[in-house]
Amino acid sequence: MKNSDLLVKINKTAKRIQFSGTFYAKSKELSLTESYGYANRSEKVKNESKTRYGIASGCKIFTAIAICQLVEEGKISFSSKLNECLDIDFPYFDQNVTIHQLLTHTSGIPDYFDEEEMDDYEELWVTTPMYHIRELKDFLPLFKNKEMQDAAGRTFHYNNAGYIVLGLTVEKVSGLTFSDYIERFVFQKAGMMESGYFEMDKLPAKVALGYVQKPDGGWKTNTYSLPAKSASDGGAYVTAEDMILFWKALMDDQLLTPEMTRTLLKSMAEIDEDLFYGYGVYILKEEEAVVKYILMGYDPGVNFRSVYYPDKQLSIVVCSNESEGAYEILKEIEVSI
């Protein structure tokens, strides 16, 4: 399909669902991007190709890469136990929880936001003011004194707290703040010069405000719906183009050695019949062959989807500054290519 014909189809879907955000599809034969809606509704500032969007849990893979880099350096291992990496007291945690289990959501540790039991992230900040959550250690009171959810290593159970613990490990081992580490050793190495971990009340230029639809049909920003600063379990800000650069850097072994890249992208935990989890990334397979790698993120006022098809060397990124819409745009592109 010609780029112009594909754009017509995507535009129709974007209009139908009133999509707000940016998509970018890139392969050897294809390079197509378009933006829709407003980065700032009250000021009528339109989203554009250089707009930076929050991507929620879509950035767990950055945390996983940081851990893999530290493993490469011999500073930790995937079999390192939690109490070997951190001097934080987790009174009810199994002392045998490993870095591998944290990476694959099989650690069994308690979560501060269990997505299978809670569907409204905003509820967290009723009793814990979100403006106090500016460092990774600020998340600890939300889960450190809870009992284990399951036995370590038993089953896959998506866990945000596990990635907070991994971020704390990055800080402890590297001596850098988590955000500084990622910006230096992931973003800069990948050429992602517009991306970063920002504070909600100190946002730089060209950041799309996240919008949440109210029951009466109006809109509010997500300023009071998320932690004040993005963290190791989610919330980084990127441009769609930067995520295209990320996929290229990862697949070209610019972030990790070839062997470690294969480890990161290996199927580690089975979620469903054909769906698996590696380190920070979902993996869809068909008869043992990888169909695509998947990143996704959902927060109030944030909707993110990105995939990479290894056989086609095709990257697709869809960023939205509303709570829905990214999946529909992604599927329109996938079925049309």
Score class of each variant (00 low, 15 high):
Met118Leu: 10
Met118Val: 05
Asp119His: 14
Ile109Gln: 03
Tyr112Ser: 09
Tyr92Gln: 13
Ile109Glu: 03
Thr98Trp: 03
Tyr112Cys: 03
Tyr112Met: 01
His157Gln: 15
Asp119Met: 08
Val97Asn: 06
Ile88Met: 02
Lys81Thr: 10
Glu117Cys: 08
Leu136Asn: 04
Cys85Lys: 00
Ser107Asn: 09
Asp119Pro: 01
Phe90Thr: 01
Gln95Asn: 12
Ala152Asn: 12
Phe90Glu: 03
Phe156Lys: 11
Glu122Asp: 05
Lys137Pro: 00
Asp111Ile: 07
Asp138Met: 07
Phe113Ser: 05
Phe90Trp: 05
Arg134Ser: 11
Phe93Ser: 03
Thr128His: 08
Leu136Val: 02
Asn159Val: 02
Phe93Asn: 05
Met130Lys: 13
Asp150Thr: 05
Leu102Ala: 10
Gly153Val: 04
Leu103Trp: 04
Tyr112Gln: 04
Lys137Phe: 00
Ser107Cys: 07
Thr106Tyr: 04
Phe139Val: 02
Val126Glu: 12
Phe93Thr: 06
Phe93Leu: 07
Phe93Arg: 05
Thr128Ile: 09
Phe93Tyr: 13
Met130Tyr: 14
Leu142Asn: 06
Met148Gly: 13
Ser107Pro: 08
Pro141Ser: 11
Met118Cys: 07
Gly108Gln: 10
Phe93Ala: 09
Lys144Asp: 03
Tyr131Met: 10
Pro141Tyr: 06
Cys85Leu: 03
His132Ala: 11
Phe113Ile: 06
Gln95Cys: 08
Glu116Phe: 07
Phe113Asn: 02
Leu142Gly: 04
Glu84Trp: 03
Ile133Phe: 03
Glu116Ile: 06
Asn96Cys: 05
Phe143Asp: 00
Lys137Ser: 11
Arg154Asp: 15
Pro141Arg: 08
Asn96Ala: 12
His105Ser: 09
Glu116Ser: 11
Glu115Gln: 11
Lys137Gly: 00
Arg134Asp: 05
Phe156Tyr: 15
Ile99Ser: 10
Thr98Ser: 15
Asp89Arg: 06
Ile99Val: 15
His105Cys: 12
Pro141Leu: 12
His157Ala: 13
Pro141Gly: 08
Tyr92Ser: 11
Ile99Asp: 08
Gln149Leu: 15
Leu136Ala: 07
Thr155His: 14
Ile88Cys: 03
Asn83Ala: 00
Leu102Gln: 08
His105Asp: 09
Glu122Ala: 14
Glu84Met: 00
Glu84Ile: 03
Glu135Ser: 13
Thr106Asn: 06
Glu147Trp: 09
Pro91Tyr: 02
Tyr92Glu: 15
